Simulated assay, not measured.
Amino acid sequence: MVDVFFNNWDNSGFNNSRPIDTSDPTYVIVHGYQSTGGNPDNNFTPQAWMSEMAENIRDLEGNDANILVVDWQDGADTLNYPAAADRVDDVGVEVANYLLDQGVNPADTTLIGHSLGAHVMGEAGEELRERSGEVDLLIGLDPAGPEFEGGWFSSANPTDDRLDPTDADRVVAFHTSSTLGYDDPLGDFDVYVNWDDWFQPGSWNFADNHSYAHTLYNDLLEGNQFPQNNGTIFSLSTVQNDSITGSKSVDTFAV
Protein backbone atom coordinates (compact mmCIF):
# COMPACT_ATOMS: atom_id res chain seq x y z
CA MET A 1 0.00 0.00 0.00
CA VAL A 2 1.30 3.45 -0.94
CA ASP A 3 1.49 6.06 1.82
CA VAL A 4 -0.86 8.91 0.87
CA PHE A 5 -1.06 12.20 2.77
CA PHE A 6 -3.97 14.65 2.60
CA ASN A 7 -2.90 18.20 3.34
CA ASN A 8 -5.55 20.82 4.05
CA TRP A 9 -4.72 24.21 2.51
CA ASP A 10 -5.79 27.14 4.65
CA ASN A 11 -4.52 30.61 3.76
CA SER A 12 -1.03 30.63 2.23
CA GLY A 13 -0.11 27.25 3.68
CA PHE A 14 -1.17 23.92 5.16
CA ASN A 15 -3.31 23.70 8.26
CA ASN A 16 -4.06 20.05 8.83
CA SER A 17 -6.04 20.85 11.95
CA ARG A 18 -8.59 22.70 9.81
CA PRO A 19 -11.73 20.52 9.67
CA ILE A 20 -13.49 19.54 6.45
CA ASP A 21 -16.76 21.44 6.11
CA THR A 22 -19.06 19.16 4.12
CA SER A 23 -21.36 22.08 3.31
CA ASP A 24 -18.58 23.73 1.30
CA PRO A 25 -17.23 22.76 -2.14
CA THR A 26 -14.12 20.58 -2.14
CA TYR A 27 -11.08 20.81 -4.40
CA VAL A 28 -8.48 18.05 -4.53
CA ILE A 29 -5.09 18.48 -6.23
CA VAL A 30 -2.69 15.60 -6.91
CA HIS A 31 0.76 15.40 -8.49
CA GLY A 32 2.32 12.94 -10.92
CA TYR A 33 5.57 11.02 -11.41
CA GLN A 34 8.65 11.85 -9.30
CA SER A 35 6.84 14.63 -7.52
CA THR A 36 5.47 15.49 -4.10
CA GLY A 37 2.46 17.10 -2.48
CA GLY A 38 4.13 17.43 0.93
CA ASN A 39 4.79 14.77 3.57
CA PRO A 40 6.66 14.37 6.88
CA ASP A 41 9.94 13.50 5.13
CA ASN A 42 10.09 16.86 3.33
CA ASN A 43 8.50 18.96 6.08
CA PHE A 44 5.22 19.03 4.17
CA THR A 45 6.64 20.98 1.24
CA PRO A 46 4.58 20.51 -1.94
CA GLN A 47 5.57 21.34 -5.50
CA ALA A 48 5.42 25.08 -6.11
CA TRP A 49 2.68 24.73 -8.73
CA MET A 50 0.47 22.91 -6.24
CA SER A 51 0.85 25.63 -3.62
CA GLU A 52 0.13 28.24 -6.26
CA MET A 53 -2.96 26.37 -7.44
CA ALA A 54 -4.29 25.88 -3.92
CA GLU A 55 -3.83 29.57 -3.16
CA ASN A 56 -5.45 30.58 -6.45
CA ILE A 57 -8.49 28.48 -5.59
CA ARG A 58 -8.57 29.99 -2.09
CA ASP A 59 -8.51 33.46 -3.65
CA LEU A 60 -11.45 32.55 -5.88
CA GLU A 61 -13.52 30.76 -3.24
CA GLY A 62 -12.63 32.77 -0.17
CA ASN A 63 -12.83 30.85 3.07
CA ASP A 64 -15.79 28.77 1.91
CA ALA A 65 -13.99 25.79 0.36
CA ASN A 66 -12.09 22.67 1.32
CA ILE A 67 -8.78 22.55 -0.58
CA LEU A 68 -6.80 19.32 -0.29
CA VAL A 69 -3.27 18.81 -1.64
CA VAL A 70 -2.57 15.09 -1.97
CA ASP A 71 0.87 13.53 -1.64
CA TRP A 72 1.78 10.07 -2.94
CA GLN A 73 5.54 10.58 -3.25
CA ASP A 74 6.00 7.17 -1.64
CA GLY A 75 4.69 5.59 -4.86
CA ALA A 76 5.70 8.22 -7.42
CA ASP A 77 9.33 8.94 -6.54
CA THR A 78 11.06 6.06 -8.31
CA LEU A 79 13.17 5.55 -11.42
CA ASN A 80 10.82 2.69 -12.31
CA TYR A 81 8.09 4.58 -14.15
CA PRO A 82 5.98 1.48 -14.95
CA ALA A 83 5.91 0.66 -11.23
CA ALA A 84 4.66 4.17 -10.46
CA ALA A 85 2.02 3.85 -13.19
CA ASP A 86 0.86 0.55 -11.68
CA ARG A 87 0.17 2.32 -8.37
CA VAL A 88 -2.28 4.80 -9.89
CA ASP A 89 -5.37 2.70 -9.18
CA ASP A 90 -4.45 2.10 -5.54
CA VAL A 91 -3.80 5.79 -4.93
CA GLY A 92 -7.07 6.72 -6.61
CA VAL A 93 -8.96 4.35 -4.33
CA GLU A 94 -7.22 5.88 -1.29
CA VAL A 95 -8.31 9.36 -2.44
CA ALA A 96 -11.90 8.17 -2.82
CA ASN A 97 -11.82 6.42 0.56
CA TYR A 98 -10.59 9.57 2.28
CA LEU A 99 -13.26 11.77 0.71
CA LEU A 100 -15.98 9.28 1.60
CA ASP A 101 -14.69 8.98 5.17
CA GLN A 102 -14.84 12.78 5.46
CA GLY A 103 -18.42 12.87 4.18
CA VAL A 104 -17.56 15.02 1.17
CA ASN A 105 -20.31 15.39 -1.43
CA PRO A 106 -18.94 14.28 -4.86
CA ALA A 107 -21.48 16.53 -6.62
CA ASP A 108 -19.73 19.53 -5.07
CA THR A 109 -16.19 18.29 -5.68
CA THR A 110 -13.49 19.18 -8.23
CA LEU A 111 -10.61 16.76 -8.79
CA ILE A 112 -7.41 18.10 -10.38
CA GLY A 113 -4.46 15.90 -11.37
CA HIS A 114 -1.28 16.31 -13.39
CA SER A 115 0.31 13.53 -15.49
CA LEU A 116 -0.11 10.23 -13.61
CA GLY A 117 -2.17 12.27 -11.18
CA ALA A 118 -4.82 12.77 -13.85
CA HIS A 119 -5.33 9.01 -14.00
CA VAL A 120 -5.27 8.86 -10.17
CA MET A 121 -8.19 11.26 -10.22
CA GLY A 122 -9.88 9.20 -12.90
CA GLU A 123 -9.80 6.19 -10.60
CA ALA A 124 -10.97 8.30 -7.66
CA GLY A 125 -13.86 9.63 -9.72
CA GLU A 126 -14.85 6.13 -10.80
CA GLU A 127 -14.79 4.89 -7.20
CA LEU A 128 -16.87 7.79 -5.98
CA ARG A 129 -19.43 7.32 -8.76
CA GLU A 130 -19.85 3.65 -7.93
CA ARG A 131 -20.03 4.10 -4.16
CA SER A 132 -21.56 7.51 -3.52
CA GLY A 133 -22.22 9.77 -6.50
CA GLU A 134 -20.73 11.50 -9.50
CA VAL A 135 -17.96 14.08 -9.12
CA ASP A 136 -18.87 17.51 -10.48
CA LEU A 137 -15.65 18.38 -12.37
CA LEU A 138 -12.37 16.60 -13.10
CA ILE A 139 -9.40 18.45 -14.62
CA GLY A 140 -6.68 16.29 -16.19
CA LEU A 141 -3.51 18.32 -16.71
CA ASP A 142 -1.63 16.63 -19.55
CA PRO A 143 -2.66 13.10 -18.50
CA ALA A 144 0.27 10.70 -18.77
CA GLY A 145 0.63 8.82 -22.03
CA PRO A 146 3.30 6.14 -21.44
CA GLU A 147 1.81 2.93 -20.02
CA PHE A 148 -1.70 4.23 -20.78
CA GLU A 149 -2.08 5.06 -24.47
CA GLY A 150 -0.42 1.97 -25.91
CA GLY A 151 2.17 1.81 -28.66
CA TRP A 152 3.68 -0.47 -31.25
CA PHE A 153 3.40 -3.57 -29.07
CA SER A 154 0.44 -2.76 -26.84
CA SER A 155 -3.05 -1.34 -26.99
CA ALA A 156 -4.39 1.59 -25.01
CA ASN A 157 -5.59 0.90 -21.48
CA PRO A 158 -9.31 0.23 -21.14
CA THR A 159 -11.30 3.16 -19.78
CA ASP A 160 -11.56 1.69 -16.28
CA ASP A 161 -7.74 1.85 -16.01
CA ARG A 162 -7.32 5.49 -17.07
CA LEU A 163 -9.05 8.83 -17.15
CA ASP A 164 -12.26 8.79 -19.20
CA PRO A 165 -15.45 10.87 -19.60
CA THR A 166 -17.45 8.75 -17.12
CA ASP A 167 -15.16 9.69 -14.21
CA ALA A 168 -17.06 12.94 -13.51
CA ASP A 169 -20.06 14.90 -14.70
CA ARG A 170 -17.56 17.01 -16.69
CA VAL A 171 -14.05 15.82 -17.54
CA VAL A 172 -11.65 18.33 -19.09
CA ALA A 173 -8.21 17.27 -20.34
CA PHE A 174 -5.41 19.68 -21.20
CA HIS A 175 -2.96 18.27 -23.75
CA THR A 176 0.41 20.03 -23.81
CA SER A 177 2.98 17.32 -24.64
CA SER A 178 2.67 14.75 -27.40
CA THR A 179 5.72 12.95 -25.97
CA LEU A 180 4.83 12.52 -22.30
CA GLY A 181 1.07 13.13 -22.47
CA TYR A 182 -1.88 11.15 -23.79
CA ASP A 183 -2.53 12.21 -27.37
CA ASP A 184 -6.09 11.04 -27.98
CA PRO A 185 -9.18 12.64 -26.41
CA LEU A 186 -9.90 11.53 -22.86
CA GLY A 187 -12.69 13.76 -21.62
CA ASP A 188 -15.90 15.58 -22.43
CA PHE A 189 -13.74 18.53 -23.47
CA ASP A 190 -10.16 18.10 -24.67
CA VAL A 191 -7.98 21.18 -25.06
CA TYR A 192 -4.99 20.81 -27.39
CA VAL A 193 -2.67 23.64 -26.46
CA ASN A 194 -0.23 24.99 -29.08
CA TRP A 195 -0.32 21.50 -30.52
CA ASP A 196 1.58 22.35 -33.71
CA ASP A 197 4.46 24.04 -31.87
CA TRP A 198 7.60 22.23 -30.76
CA PHE A 199 7.67 23.96 -27.38
CA GLN A 200 5.18 25.60 -25.08
CA PRO A 201 5.65 29.19 -23.86
CA GLY A 202 8.70 29.34 -21.62
CA SER A 203 9.56 25.71 -22.37
CA TRP A 204 12.77 24.31 -23.83
CA ASN A 205 12.22 20.57 -23.61
CA PHE A 206 9.46 17.96 -23.56
CA ALA A 207 9.37 17.81 -19.76
CA ASP A 208 8.67 21.55 -19.67
CA ASN A 209 5.90 21.02 -22.23
CA HIS A 210 4.38 18.44 -19.90
CA SER A 211 4.49 20.90 -17.00
CA TYR A 212 2.94 23.72 -19.02
CA ALA A 213 -0.49 22.18 -18.38
CA HIS A 214 -0.46 23.17 -14.70
CA THR A 215 1.16 26.52 -15.54
CA LEU A 216 -1.69 27.28 -17.93
CA TYR A 217 -4.39 26.17 -15.49
CA ASN A 218 -2.89 28.42 -12.82
CA ASP A 219 -2.94 31.26 -15.35
CA LEU A 220 -6.65 30.64 -15.95
CA LEU A 221 -7.38 30.51 -12.21
CA GLU A 222 -5.63 33.88 -11.89
CA GLY A 223 -8.03 35.35 -14.43
CA ASN A 224 -5.82 35.36 -17.50
CA GLN A 225 -7.63 35.11 -20.82
CA PHE A 226 -6.23 34.07 -24.19
CA PRO A 227 -7.72 35.69 -27.31
CA GLN A 228 -7.84 33.31 -30.26
CA ASN A 229 -7.36 34.13 -33.91
CA ASN A 230 -11.01 33.24 -34.61
CA GLY A 231 -12.24 35.96 -32.27
CA THR A 232 -13.07 33.71 -29.30
CA ILE A 233 -11.55 33.88 -25.83
CA PHE A 234 -10.08 30.93 -23.97
CA SER A 235 -10.59 31.41 -20.23
CA LEU A 236 -11.57 29.62 -17.05
CA SER A 237 -15.23 29.98 -18.01
CA THR A 238 -14.47 28.04 -21.22
CA VAL A 239 -13.19 25.14 -19.13
CA GLN A 240 -16.17 25.19 -16.79
CA ASN A 241 -18.90 25.65 -19.41
CA ASP A 242 -20.79 22.36 -19.70
CA SER A 243 -22.06 23.26 -23.17
CA ILE A 244 -18.52 23.35 -24.60
CA THR A 245 -17.52 19.80 -25.51
CA GLY A 246 -15.38 17.92 -28.02
CA SER A 247 -11.80 18.81 -28.93
CA LYS A 248 -10.53 22.36 -29.25
CA SER A 249 -7.18 23.72 -30.42
CA VAL A 250 -5.99 26.65 -28.33
CA ASP A 251 -3.15 29.04 -29.11
CA THR A 252 -1.74 30.71 -26.00
CA PHE A 253 0.84 32.54 -28.12
CA ALA A 254 -1.96 34.45 -29.88
CA VAL A 255 -2.49 38.09 -28.96
Score class of each variant (00 low, 15 high):
14 F>V: 07
207 A>W: 08
103 G>N: 09
61 E>C: 13
32 G>K: 06
227 P>H: 03
101 D>S: 15
237 S>W: 05
243 S>L: 00
182 Y>C: 07
93 V>D: 01
54 A>K: 14
173 A>N: 03
91 V>D: 12
115 S>Q: 10
197 D>W: 06
19 P>Q: 08
167 D>W: 15
218 N>D: 01
159 T>D: 15
88 V>P: 12
68 L>M: 12
167 D>I: 13
240 Q>W: 00
189 F>N: 06
8 N>M: 08
127 E>G: 01
70 V>N: 06
216 L>R: 03
162 R>K: 11
203 S>F: 00
102 Q>L: 08
227 P>G: 03
163 L>D: 08
72 W>P: 14
80 N>K: 02
200 Q>H: 09
233 I>D: 07
41 D>L: 11
209 N>W: 01
39 N>D: 03
41 D>G: 00
187 G>H: 07
249 S>G: 02
74 D>L: 14
70 V>C: 07
208 D>S: 02
10 D>M: 00
1 M>P: 09
5 F>P: 06
124 A>C: 10
122 G>R: 12
114 H>F: 10
131 R>P: 03
201 P>Q: 02
122 G>K: 08
7 N>Q: 09
30 V>M: 00
164 D>S: 15
127 E>V: 06
49 W>V: 13
164 D>L: 08
15 N>W: 09
100 L>F: 08
155 S>Y: 05
16 N>R: 05
75 G>M: 06
56 N>F: 01
184 D>I: 01
113 G>A: 11
71 D>G: 00
31 H>G: 06
239 V>S: 01
97 N>Y: 11
17 S>V: 08
181 G>S: 15
200 Q>I: 01
18 R>C: 02
151 G>P: 05
160 D>P: 04
94 E>M: 13
153 F>N: 13
17 S>L: 05
211 S>G: 08
233 I>H: 01
129 R>I: 13
178 S>C: 03
85 A>P: 10
130 E>F: 14
114 H>W: 10
88 V>M: 11
2 V>E: 14
248 K>P: 00
